[in-house]
Amino acid sequence: MTDPPRVLLADDQTLVRTGFRMILGADGIDVVAEATNGAEAVEAARRTRPDVILLDIRMPEMDGLEATRRILAAPQAGGPRVIILTTFDLDRYVYAALSAGASGFLLKDVTPEYLVAAVRTVRTGDALLAPAITRRLVQRFARRGSDTASLHRDLASLTPRELEVLGLLARGLSNAELATRLHLAETTVKTHVARILAKLGLRDRVQAVIVASQPTNLAVSVGAAGWLTALV
């Protein structure tokens, strides 16, 4: 894709929106709309059909979780990618948003370079899984299996190599990093990832992390690929 991503910013803090808009604009990324609450975000997504939505998790009138659900369920929005903006004070809401189909999440103190990279990454269809954040995600899911019931999957259909790749995905590794770690061509890694997502009926890497982090699946994966200790 050669055109820059079209972005919707949704946050009830004016300074956050202003700062993010300036950072994205400096890199040639167009902010097509702003919203101060979830209801406005849903309407703006329908009206402007952005490529990427930066969505605060806690907003008045409608929170980011409900807004994520409504935006991703509405064909009029054009299938945007949602990045949740949060602090870890609200972990459980973040995880629910990821289960609803969000493509990743960022801390609000993210660096300008990472913000720009995140928007461009999810716009291409990938998921945002920073390793440090992913470890928190895995640890919380390992303790809260009930939070992920809607994404339960049986890993028995995966080959030993696919289980190994899934374990590394859950650590936040990119395709290039996976290729280096496994001594494979990057095209081969992409094939493995695509097969994993297809076999498990998953949307993207974020949902793969959710599935891999369920207690029952952690046990299966440890037995087949031995990667649990590296996750925590």
Rank of each mutant, 00 (worst) to 15 (best):
R140M: 15
Y95G: 01
R81V: 03
T36K: 14
L200I: 02
L168N: 08
G145P: 06
R70W: 10
V94T: 07
A45T: 02
T2A: 07
G79R: 01
A39K: 12
P50W: 03
V222T: 12
L178R: 03
L106P: 08
L151N: 00
V16R: 08
V189E: 01
R58C: 02
T36G: 14
P4N: 05
E66R: 12
R47A: 13
I23K: 01
R171G: 15
I83F: 04
N175A: 15
E162M: 06
I71F: 01
G19I: 06
V206P: 04
Q214M: 09
D63R: 00
P4S: 00
E113M: 10
R81C: 00
V220H: 07
T191L: 09
A176T: 01
T148W: 12
G25C: 06
A117F: 08
H192V: 08
L168C: 09
L137P: 05
M59Q: 09
M62S: 09
P80S: 06
A224N: 07
D154V: 11
I83Y: 02
V110M: 05
D3N: 13
R143Q: 13
T187E: 13
V206D: 07
T191K: 11
R143S: 13
V32T: 09
S103I: 00
W227D: 10
A44S: 04
V42Y: 03
T159Q: 03
R203Q: 14
W227A: 07
T18N: 14
R135G: 08
A96N: 10
D27E: 13
A208D: 10
L197K: 10
A219K: 13
P50V: 07
G145N: 00
V211W: 01
P5F: 04
V31S: 03
L115H: 09
A185L: 09
G226V: 09
R123T: 10
L169G: 01
A198T: 11
E34H: 07
V7N: 02
A100C: 02
R47L: 13
A156Y: 02
S157T: 15
T121L: 12
P112M: 06
T68G: 02
A67R: 02
H152S: 15
L8D: 01
H152Q: 14
D63H: 08
A208V: 11
T36A: 14
Q76W: 03
D30C: 00
A230H: 12
E164K: 01
D56S: 01
V211R: 05
K108R: 14
L115N: 05
I23Q: 01
L200W: 03
